[in-house]
Amino acid sequence: YWITCCPTCDVDINTWVPFYSTELNKPAMIYCSHGDGHWVHAQCMDLAERTLIHLSAGSNKYYCNEHVEIARALHTP
């Protein structure tokens, strides 16, 4: 949970406070499906809480801010 998930990541173990109602003692993470995949903080991706809950409940693929354009290009005929 205490990783630098992207170039603009500002989640710090020493200063972090809950942002989403689902967070208690660690930041919400979401899995990016690009390549071998990697974890990113939901807050760093500017996800709305409703979107985070929807993604967490389903089996939808998610692409982080850095990889979403690549994913779109691969799926565009």
Rank of each mutant, 00 (worst) to 15 (best):
H34E: 09
D36F: 05
K26R: 12
H38A: 00
H75W: 09
K26V: 09
S56K: 13
P77N: 04
Q43V: 08
E69F: 01
H41W: 01
Y63F: 12
V11M: 05
T51N: 06
H41N: 07
A73K: 15
A73C: 15
H54V: 12
V68M: 09
N25S: 10
G58Q: 13
L55K: 11
G35Q: 07
C44R: 00
H75C: 07
N14S: 03
F19Q: 03
Y63W: 15
T4K: 10
Y31S: 06
E49T: 03
L24Q: 09
I13L: 09
C9G: 00
V68L: 09
V17I: 07
G58I: 12
Y1I: 04
D46A: 14
Y63N: 03
Y20E: 02
N65S: 14
C6V: 09
A57G: 09
A28T: 05
P18H: 06
D46W: 06
P77R: 15
R50S: 15
L55C: 13
N65T: 12
C32F: 00
T51P: 06
M45P: 00
V40G: 01
I53W: 08
R50I: 14
Y1G: 09
N60I: 10
C44H: 00
N25H: 15
C64A: 00
T76E: 15
N65E: 14
P18N: 02
N25P: 01
N25C: 04
V68Q: 02
S56T: 12
W39A: 06
Y63K: 12
G58P: 12
W2H: 08
G58Y: 08
Y31I: 01
D36H: 05
S21W: 03
S21C: 13
Y1C: 13
T15A: 03
W2S: 05
T8D: 04
A71H: 06
W39K: 05
A28G: 01
D46I: 07
G37F: 01
M45N: 11
E69M: 15
G37W: 00
E66L: 12
P7W: 05
I3L: 08
E69C: 03
V17C: 15
W39M: 09
S59Q: 05
E66S: 11
D46T: 14
Y1V: 12
V40T: 03
R50W: 06
V17M: 08
W2A: 03
P77A: 08
T51C: 11
A42N: 00
I3R: 11
Y20H: 07
T76K: 14
W2Q: 03
A57V: 07
D36L: 09
A42G: 08
K61H: 15
I53T: 12
R72K: 13
S56C: 09
I70G: 10
S21Q: 04
M29E: 03
A28V: 07
H34C: 04
T76L: 11
W39I: 05
H34G: 12
S21A: 06
E69H: 11
P27A: 01
C32Y: 00
P27F: 02
A48S: 10
L52I: 06
W2R: 03
D12F: 05
T15P: 01
Y63M: 07
C44A: 00
H75Q: 14
W16G: 02
Y31C: 11
C6A: 15
R50E: 13
L55H: 14
L24Y: 04
H54W: 10
N25M: 05
A28S: 11
M45L: 04
D12G: 11
C44N: 01
C64G: 00
R72S: 14
I13C: 10
L55M: 11
